[in-house]
Design a protein around this nucleic acid. Structure first.
Length: 740
DNA sequence: CGTGCCAGAGTTTTT
DNA sequence: CTCTGGCACG
């Protein structure tokens, strides 16, 4: 395979070593993705292994997508193989086998917001002091339990029966019961339950063990205990497991990642081969040396040192500003200075320790009219309006989803307050039916106030309609319908505030997400769509082609690279964060984070700090970061170019809403409204014999129209569908010649 | 039931 | 500072 010539000797060795356990210690920028994709291509093309028998797991959708693209480029054409995140791999397994654990088909996946809502109701139910016991408190404990496969009972046994343990135990147990009742799993459950399936159903385990002859794990340093178990169980049979990682880049220990998984791989898998990739292809010599001078202070790391054939390049620039505003202005000025014709704004990244730091940079960049994009912070799907519309869609998919219903029952305002809701919920409990069924009961609705009953009738009608028709509709049709017919969009529009406008923008951005998915698969079902977005992070949405400076935390930047990188806030207490000072391991993890941040840079690295920093309204004098002190001074260019006087005439800041966006939300808004209107108006005209087109089913002929509301169509593919008039995205078929 | 005010809390967060 | 959630009032 001639493509292997692109690899260096170590990379090639790793790619060709396919039988038996293999640990690839891949330093930052050492071409690990390339190595892995070539390895997969080699297995398929040279060794004749069916893609069906290969499993590759990553942590992010982005990494999985990139790997898939590159494998496909190598072997030419699409591959039907499992290149998935841990969570989606588990989800796939569970869709088939979760019945074994007592889940029903089509179980929901709860994201952190759902978890919080669920836990909140439990805290209330258990009558706990919600000052001392916040949902987050319990959820943190529960999550770390699940990472170790620790059940509520295990927890009680391990930590004794004191007062506090008992409360956590109760909360944990109730939480599990609630989720089970709602037929839902949280993110941690996906892994835990997949492992449980393997433990309880030998046939299922054997099926996957036999299928996956070759297993690959990316970012192995960040696997936690349950992920380790999952992988180990799968690899048991063939032992062809290849893990790739870098102990220096383990930055999720605080979330349960166990660095021992990589340090002790050779113990866990006998006769494991180890290959080190130490040649860096990303950064210049000085950047690499600087990063190394910091990371080498860590104890207990696998000894390795990256090297490069590249020139030393520019020295590291360090600038100490008076305060954080000046720090931000300096960075913005530098971006302006370095942004030449040949450069894009997307060549620049500002990577900070905490999301709270983004604000000053946003202001400074706006001031210079530099386009930028903030990733992370409030997760995109966590925004209120997006969560709301998702709840509506979830309700359409499954009207029995009480949690979703509670979320939107009074959104937009329908005159259902806490009291009324409580009564309705109580009724549902007594009757042992879902909340939605209670709302569908005309007798119940009739007893409500005039405003409330009208609102509920509309809600029930719209949701039922779409729910019944979901198979026949595109996801975007359902989205349009919910937004318009529930009155949600109208209320926002009527508010006429900047805030509402921002919300509408977010909603329209969500619509382009739907379009993106539909572009790939018109048949996409609502359930599938909900699943994809549930397991989606915002970084996955990061579009490299958008010409904007990128702002994000160093955590989110793992796996990315930029020609120019700024690391602001190099101050003790901020970075490393004050919490890290308690324990040496904490400091080491921060140091690894620093290493990750620095090694994102290809050409230029700039560190900054502020003498005075205002955080949470308090201004304090700061001390330069310990990591700055550790950095080899010979690599630093002390003469940062910055003329303070210039900063006096900064252009007026634009407000936050003028941020550059990659699309036109108002255009889409028009479209949403129009599409719903059009459908409502146009459907009456269909008559038997009409030639029609449906985006999901293709061309067909109208067979008959029942009661003017149900259109029966027989499609060219042989299927016969009954479609609801006024909802179905049906249009008259126009032969080609007439179109021109 | 909806709004508006105040108190309290505020690393990081691949899914 | 700035967001969130709880509570009191209209």
């Amino acid at each position: 395979m001639k493509e292997l010539d692109n690899l260096n000797p170590q990379q090639r060795e790793a790619a060709l070593y396919t039988e038996g356990p293999l640990l690839i210690l891949a330093g930052a920028g050492s071409g690990k993705t390339s190595t892995m994709t070539h390895r997969i291509a080699y297995l398929i093309k040279e060794k004749g292994v069916s893609p069906y028998r290969i499993l590759a797991v990553t942590f992010t959708n982005k990494a999985a997508g990139e790997m898939r693209d590159r494998v496909e480029a190598l072997i030419g054409g699409g591959v039907n193989m499992w290149i998935l995140t841990f969570h989606s791999a588990c989800l796939r397994i569970l869709r088939k086998h979760a019945g074994l654990l007592g889940y029903k088909d089509g179980f929901a996946v709860y994201d952190p917001t759902d978890q919080k809502a669920a836990m909140k109701s439990i805290v209330k139910e258990l009558n706990l002091d919600d000052k001392r016991y916040t949902p987050a408190y319990f959820l943190n404990i529960i999550s770390s339990c699940k990472e170790k496969a620790m059940t509520p009972d295990d927890y009680l046994q391990t930590y004794g029966e004191d007062y506090k343990t008992k409360i956590v135990y109760q909360a944990y147990q109730s939480y599990e019961t609630l989720l089970k009742k709602n037929n839902a799993m949280d993110f941690d459950d996906l892994l835990l339950n997949a492992v449980r399936v393997f433990q309880r159903d030998e046939a299922a385990l054997l099926e996957y063990q036999q299928r996956f002859q070759y297993i690959m794990v990316d970012e192995y340093q960040d696997t936690n205990s349950i992920q380790y178990t999952f992988v180990k169980m799968l690899a048991e049979q063939h032992q062809n497991i290849c893990v790739v990682g870098d102990d220096d880049q383990c930055i999720y220990q605080w979330r349960g990642a166990d660095i021992r998984n990589i340090l002790e791989f050779e113990k866990d898998f006998k006769n494991a081969k180890v290959v080190k990739l130490e040649q860096n292809y990303r950064s210049t010599g000085n950047i690499l040396a600087a990063a190394h001078s910091v990371i080498e202070k860590n104890r207990g790391r696998k000894d390795k040192k990256l090297w490069t054939e590249q020139e030393p390049g520019n020295k590291i620039v360090y600038f100490r500003a008076d305060d954080e505003r000046e720090e931000a202005r300096y960075v913005a000025q530098e971006i302006d200075r370095l942004k030449t014709k040949e450069r894009n704004y997307s060549d620049f990244a500002i990577l900070y320790r905490t999301n709270a730091q983004s604000r000053t940079f946003e202001e400074a960049l706006s001031g210079r009219e530099i386009p930028y994009r903030v990733l992370g912070g409030l997760r995109y799907y966590d925004r209120k309006e997006v969560k709301d519309i998702i709840s509506y869609m979830r309700l359409v998919q499954n009207p029995a989803d009480d949690l979703a219903l509670v979320r939107i029952i009074n959104e937009p305002k329908r005159g259902i307050g806490a009291k009324t809701l409580e009564k309705l919920q109580a009724l549902a409990k007594v009757r042992e039916v879902s909340l939605f069924q209670v709302l569908a009961d005309e007798e119940v609705v009739g007893s409500l106030s005039a405003k409330a009953s009208a609102g509920i009738r509309n809600l029930v009608e719209v949701v039922s309609q779409y729910s019944a028709e979901q198979e026949n509709l595109r996801v975007s049709d359902i989205y349009d319908g919910m937004l318009v017919k529930t009155g949600y969009l109208k209320v926002l529009e009527d508010q006429n505030t900047l805030e509402a406008e921002g919300r509408i923008e977010n909603l329209m951005e969500f619509k382009s997400v739907i379009y993106d998915y539909e572009k790939e698969d018109m048949q996409l079902s609502l359930l599938e769509f909900m699943e994809r977005i549930a397991l989606m992070a915002e970084v996955d949405n990061h579009d490299e082609n958008e010409n904007a400076v990128v702002l994000m935390t160093m955590h989110s930047a793992k796996g990315l690279e930029f020609p120019f990188v700024f690391l602001p806030g190099m101050e003790d207490g901020l970075f490393p964060g004050w919490r890290a000072f308690d324990r040496e391991e904490g400091l080491e993890e921060e140091r690894r984070l620093c290493y990750v941040g620095m090694t994102r840079a290809k050409e230029r690295l700039c560190l900054t700090s502020a003498n005075l920093r205002t955080l949470y309204g308090k201004t304090d004098l700061t001390r330069e970061s310990q990591f700055l002190r550790e950095l080899d001074k010979r690599l630093i260019d002390g003469d940062a170019i910055y003329e303070k006087r210039k900063s006096a005439r900064d252009p007026a800041f634009l407000d936050g809403y003028s941020r550059p966006k990659p699309f036109n939300p108002f255009q889409q808004l028009k479209e949403v409204k129009q599409q719903v209107k059009e459908k409502a108006a146009s459907t009456e005209h269909f008559e038997p014999g009409d030639e029609v087109v449906h985006p999901k089913f293709g061309r067909g002929t109208v067979d008959k129209v029942d009661h003017g509301s149900i259109i029966c169509v027989s499609f060219l593919d042989g299927s016969y569908k009954k479609l609801a008039a006024g909802l179905a995205p049906l249009s008259r078929y126009i032969p080609k010649k007439e179109r021109d």
